[in-house]
Design a protein around this nucleic acid. Structure first.
Length: 342
DNA sequence: AACAGTCTCAACCGCCTCGAG
DNA sequence: TCTCGAGGCGGTTGAGACTGT
């Protein structure tokens, strides 16, 4: 198949856009709308290829784009979404971006690559597989606050790291359990086709699950912090913690008052893994009964034959790990004290 | 103040899918 | 059914900003 290359042409400009170019593009789209990108440069008087115009518009100039730092809730969605990376091969960033209102896929991707991925690597986790980076590394570094062996008295607010293996690793085993369901009778070609098809369906399934998470994204920070609180107050976990950490957790509780409204931490709903499971069950029930739960994104998505239990297990595994290690994603952020207490 | 190293993110690249003809 | 162009995607690059010495 021969294809005319879009961005190769005489006199086409590349690189950073000027204010004048931006004005021309905005003015043209304001008058004519986002149609026919191929013709827009010529009609708008721009020496750019259509593709470049489209990218500039969708990633930067569009009026409803939100810029600036990502909120804690947005980070949580990206973190959870990153768990699906090994499962879905296409449309990942755009699907995630659709769950973050006014964020572009490019921005989400950049944020993951420059911030969140780095944090995982810093903490000894492979950002692709979510496994420890190497076998000599027993797992992500764990704050000494969580080290059962360490009964010393670490500074309450500064986090020190040890290499103690955490009780549970995020997704390391559960991911490998999610395999394409190809029957024994299929040929290689058929299985290739099906694999391609399944990629779509997984993407859809992922989106549906993300949608469920995103639907409560506005309160996810509160839910997590409360759940962490509940986890820490349980006898099993508190017996493992040094006294100083109990004080630290009290500090967390005090600080939480500033961050959220008061929530009854005894309500099981706020156990995050349970919350996820319950939320998905509620959603399924609504679907079965023809309920009107608004699916913000995937209302047109066909049913999937990906085993959602596997994926839910993955989410639960990862969220459980996050709950067990509340500082996990934030240890590199020395300047983000507030986040360290969540 | 000057330089070097690091980080950020807008923009580009090449490939893919979809839909019109 | 096939071809081809438009639009969309993830991966990558590199200029400018920032930070440390």
């Amino acid at each position: 198949m021969s294809k005319r290359l879009c961005c190769i042409g005489e006199g086409l400009k590349k690189g950073a856009w000027t204010i004048e170019e931006d004005k021309k593009l905005i003015s043209y789209i304001h008058d004519h709308g986002e149609v026919g990108w191929r013709d827009i440069p010529e009609k708008a008087g721009l020496k750019r290829c259509g593709k470049s115009c489209r990218l500039r518009w969708t990633n930067y100039l569009k009026p409803d784009i939100k810029r600036g730092e990502f909120s804690y809730e947005e980070e949580q969605i990206i973190n959870l979404s990153s768990c699906f990376m090994p499962l879905v091969a296409i449309s990942t960033w755009s699907v995630i971006a659709r769950h973050l209102p006014k964020r572009t896929d490019n921005e989400v991707k950049n944020y993951w690559n420059t911030h969140l991925k780095k944090r995982l690597i810093d903490n000894g986790i492979d950002p692709v597989t979510h496994k420890p980076l190497d076998s000599s590394n027993p797992g992500p570094a764990v704050p000494k606050k969580f080290d059962c062996q360490d009964k010393s008295n670490p500074d309450e607010h500064s986090v020190q790291w040890s290499s103690t293996t955490p009780a549970s690793l995020p997704l390391s085993s559960t991911f490998s359990s999610v395999k394409p369901k190809i029957s024994s009778g299929e040929t290689q070609i058929e299985s290739g086709f099906l694999r391609c098809k399944k990629r779509f369906e997984r993407s859809s399934s992922t989106s549906r699950l993300l949608n469920k998470v995103a639907a409560r994204a506005s309160s996810i920070g509160n839910i997590l912090s409360t759940s962490i609180e509940g986890t820490l107050s349980s006898p099993a976990s508190s017996s493992c913690l040094p006294d100083s950490f109990s004080q630290s957790s009290e500090h967390m509780i005090d600080n939480k008052e500033d961050l959220s409204t008061s929530i009854d931490i005894n309500i099981p709903e706020y156990d995050f893994p349970q919350f996820l499971e319950q939320f998905i069950n509620d959603d399924d029930e609504a679907e079965n009964t023809g309920g009107s739960n608004q699916d913000l994104l995937m209302s047109d998505v066909p049913s999937t034959f990906v085993d959602e239990d596997d994926i839910i297990g993955d989410i639960t595994s990862w969220s459980t790990y996050l709950l067990d290690h509340p500082n996990f994603m934030y240890e590199s952020d020395q300047d983000s004290e507030e986040k360290n207490f969540l």
